[in-house]
């Protein structure tokens, strides 16, 4: 079973040289720490920055320079700043190659829910609906089961949707899965030490698995 950093490490392997990438809040943010040497990527922060750098050194933080998680950050040589309309313009126009975001639930037809728990959590969708509606390539980083042990990979989402039929790839603490165009989760890789039976047990939606599913290579 992977921890959060393990999930981030595995996702980082999906990033290709030359990509412009939007990282969501939570596990996706950790992916930036594991981008392999020699792979040149530009990180977009949807509050209006391309070329997001690391956190500033102590004392160098600038209140005018934050990321979409409101954290103080830095720019890099080649960075560009723009307004919020242009930021979502480049997302809508599919100039961003890859979006990585978290989810509370994903359904077997690729629907995602990650913004609202009725009566409990009313934080809002931020940029998530724009990202999932427009991105050509989305990877979801999520926990396979919730704290009560219930599957979050479902036949249909129970929470209010963020987007419909938009998710194609999921990385969890247990597995890497594709969402098939005709519906259903296809098991591609197992986390180290996790069996197909355990993944099947943790997946409420339809799961397709070959007899021999390879174990992830993450280092």
């Amino acid at each position: 079973m992977l921890d959060k950093n393990g999930i981030a490490k595995r996702i980082a392997k999906e990033i290709k040289d030359g990509y412009y990438v939007n990282l969501g809040i939570g596990i996706p943010t950790l992916v930036a720490n594991y981008i392999p040497d020699g792979v040149n990527v530009v990180l977009q922060s949807e509050n209006g920055l391309l070329g997001m750098g690391p956190f500033p050194l102590e004392g160098d933080e600038d209140p005018d320079l934050i990321n979409a998680g409101k954290q103080t950050i830095t720019t890099l040589p080649g960075s560009a700043i723009f307004d919020s309309a242009m930021s979502f313009g480049m997302i809508r126009a599919q100039k961003i190659d890859l979006t990585i975001l978290g989810a509370m639930e994903v359904s077997e037809n690729g629907d995602i829910a990650n913004w609202k728990i009725p009566g409990k959590m009313v934080k809002g969708m931020g940029g998530a609906m724009d990202l999932v509606a427009s991105a050509k390539n989305i990877i979801v980083a999520m926990q396979h089961v919730n704290k009560a042990g219930e599957s979050k990979l479902l036949p249909t989402c129970t929470l209010p949707l963020t987007g419909v039929r938009c998710i194609k790839k999921i990385v969890t603490e247990l597995a890497v899965l594709d969402v098939l165009p005709e519906g259903g989760f296809k098991l591609l890789e197992r986390a180290p030490g996790v069996s197909v039976a355990e993944i099947r047990e943790a997946t409420a939606g339809k799961l397709y698995a070959d007899d021999d599913v390879p174990e992830m290579v993450i280092d």
Partner: peptide, 12 residues
């Protein structure tokens, strides 16, 4: 005041 919501830094 320019308050910072999430002060995140690297140690020197």
């Amino acid at each position: 005041e320019k308050r910072i919501e999430q002060r995140t830094v690297r140690k020197r």
